[in-house]
Simulated assay, not measured.
Amino acid sequence: MALQPSLNFLRQGNGPNSLEIYLDALCPFSAKITRSLSENVLPLILKGGKYEGKLNLIARLYPQPFHYYAVFHTEALIVFGQLYPDLFWDYLTVIFDTQAEYFNQPSASLTPSEARDKLVHLAVDLLDKKGKSNGPKSKVFGELRDKLEVKSSPNGGNEATDGFKYGLKVGRQNGIQVTPTAVFNGLKEDAVSSSWGKEEWEKFLS
């Protein structure tokens, strides 16, 4: 389905058919389905895959309000994706691998500023690992971290806010309540499960 140009990094692969997965960065089941998509769907739709040129996968970032720090994760994902679109899925995976640190109880004493710092450090470490750092780590950290600062007004947003609002509007418009939720060519697919493995995904896609 459609994406505003500034969020094109949310799309993996290309083709006339579209599979959208609504994900909350602090939802354990969103983490589970993302790992399954990485193993069982991306290889089929990217270069050389069975469905290359036939199917695209869109990660719809959809934080749930009862996961208190999911807002900061969503902002970090949007800012990172706009700067490094080719590594967005890698960062999404890293976010899910560390999500338990930000569950409501473990993060109870964490300030928003501290949470943003930690998320940017994750991004910088990923860029360094992939050989994509544009200068010293401190410089890369500063560039990313600055984009997460609220500058527009006392109650305004940051450089992720427009993309964040767009994602929420799309989800509300489509009646998305829980994560993960799958949408195939515009229609919700309630049968899709975070527990699916290779066999279930291949049967569904065929």
Rank of each mutant, 00 (worst) to 15 (best):
L10W: 00
L10K: 03
R11A: 15
Q12M: 14
Q12H: 01
G15Y: 07
G15W: 05
N17F: 09
S18V: 15
S18N: 04
L19W: 03
L23G: 00
A25G: 06
L26E: 04
F29V: 14
S30Q: 10
K32A: 14
K32H: 15
T34I: 05
T34R: 01
R35M: 14
S36W: 09
S38V: 07
S38W: 12
N40S: 08
N40D: 09
L44H: 08
I45H: 06
K50V: 15
Y51H: 15
L61E: 09
Y62D: 00
Q64L: 14
Q64R: 15
P65F: 07
Y69D: 10
A70H: 04
H73K: 07
T74M: 11
A76M: 06
I78G: 03
V79K: 02
F80P: 10
Y84K: 07
P85I: 11
L87P: 11
F88G: 00
W89Y: 15
Y91H: 09
Y91R: 01
L92R: 09
L92P: 01
V94L: 14
I95N: 10
T98C: 05
F103Y: 04
N104G: 02
N104K: 01
P106C: 01
A108H: 03
T111K: 10
T111Q: 11
A115T: 15
R116E: 12
K118Q: 13
L119S: 09
L119H: 03
L119V: 06
V120I: 11
V120W: 01
